[in-house]
Design a protein around this nucleic acid. Structure first.
Lengths: 107, 107
DNA sequence: CTAATATGCAACCATTTGGTTGCCTGTCAA
DNA sequence: TTGACAGGCAACCAAATGGTTGCATATTAG
């Protein structure tokens, strides 16, 4: 799971995921377009996404096709974010109170 | 939003958020317990969480109290993750097909 | 066959990150 | 008032990160 968080931490990589979400199965060359960096830099980002299982690839002739796997994202949303959901609606009020509160008995 | 992703990328910081979720309003000293690193290292992590608006603090005498702000997490879950939700249930099948598919017309 | 295209591999580099240590400041208790 | 306690600040360091370049390999088009 740490791999996924790390992979998502970089804006270039999130952009690559967005690009694949918009059109799945793009080649490396296609994914490079619009990024102001070398092909190798993009390759490295894609490798990190692949290690995190967010992208899967298939060789097709001399091209490499990239496919989005959104499942790890969903798993984090479901399992990790859910933990913090309980007081969701009151969260802001609660925070505000705590910050101004004169030791309201929490400790 | 990038700040939040970056802040969440480190396991120590996620652990700190967990700790605050379990018991809100902890002091720096309390948050250091159980982490095998110096107080200053923890301070730095907390500063990153604070910059990302995931933690808010209040000085109380010589102690500094830390409070969890889960809202940025929810915002990412809602706004960013939601983008990828559309084919959610079929996602795995689709991926499998794409990887084995002999150019199924996608390109 | 040959040349162009698409990608892979490895060495290298600057900056960021995550940690340390030493010392300073502010607050509470005896 | 004088320690002891909680935290802040700054310099420093090693390793990870994100990027580059140069060259090699494999596939396809002519």
């Amino acid at each position: 799971m740490d791999d996924v968080f790390k992979a998502l931490a970089d804006p270039v990589r999130r952009q690559l995921l967005d690009s694949l979400h918009q059109r799945n199965g793009q080649t490396l060359g296609e994914l490079c377009e619009g990024h102001d960096m070398s092909r190798q830099a993009v390759t490295k980002h894609l490798a990190i996404l692949e290690d995190a299982n967010l992208v899967a690839t298939r060789k097709d002739g001399r091209e490499k096709l990239h496919f989005l796997n959104p499942l790890p994202i969903f798993e984090i949303a479901d399992r990790w974010v859910r933990k913090f959901e309980h007081g969701r609606l009151r969260a802001l009020d609660e925070l505000k109170k705590n910050l101004e509160g004169k030791s309201d008995g929490k400790r």
